[in-house]
């Protein structure tokens, strides 16, 4: 099924108009509710299509968890695999998390103290 991207963009813009520029009223509310339903439907479709949780043949069950589960103690020295992943295999991400905490507090403090 071919749909013109022009049409798609046009409808997008119409939506933008509805949500950003249309004054509050029944039309706006009705359209919003309608769209929420459509989006909800789309999300439900997506979720229903996802691989079965915990099934053996899920794509997520590949070489990555295999190594994590099988060789983490000997490779990292940590018996707890979760800790092995977050502080060794993906320690860089954890550094990022630490920085997120830091930046959050810095941003909050700079706001509070700037007064």
């Amino acid at each position: 099924m071919e749909v013109n991207p022009y049409v798609a963009v046009g409808i997008l813009l119409l939506m933008a108009y509805v949500f950003f520029y249309l004054p509050a009223g029944y039309i706006r509310h009705v359209l919003i509710v309608l769209l929420v339903f459509i989006i909800g439907y789309a999300l439900v479709m997506t979720v229903s299509e996802m691989p079965t949780f915990g099934a053996v043949d899920t794509p997520a069950h590949n070489v990555v968890p295999e190594r994590y589960l099988g060789r983490a103690p000997e490779e990292t020295g940590a018996v707890n695999v979760v800790t092995a992943i977050i502080t060794d295999y993906r320690a860089f991400d954890t550094l990022g998390e630490v920085v997120v905490l830091f930046v959050a507090i810095v941003a909050a403090l700079s706001n509070l103290k700037a007064r």
Partner: peptide, 20 residues
């Protein structure tokens, strides 16, 4: 593996994260 002082830097990193 399994002892308290094992895993090298993981222990130290956890300490840093905990303090943070």
């Amino acid at each position: 593996p399994g002892q308290l002082f094992s895993g090298g830097m993981i222990f130290l990193l956890s300490l840093g994260i905990g303090v943070k």
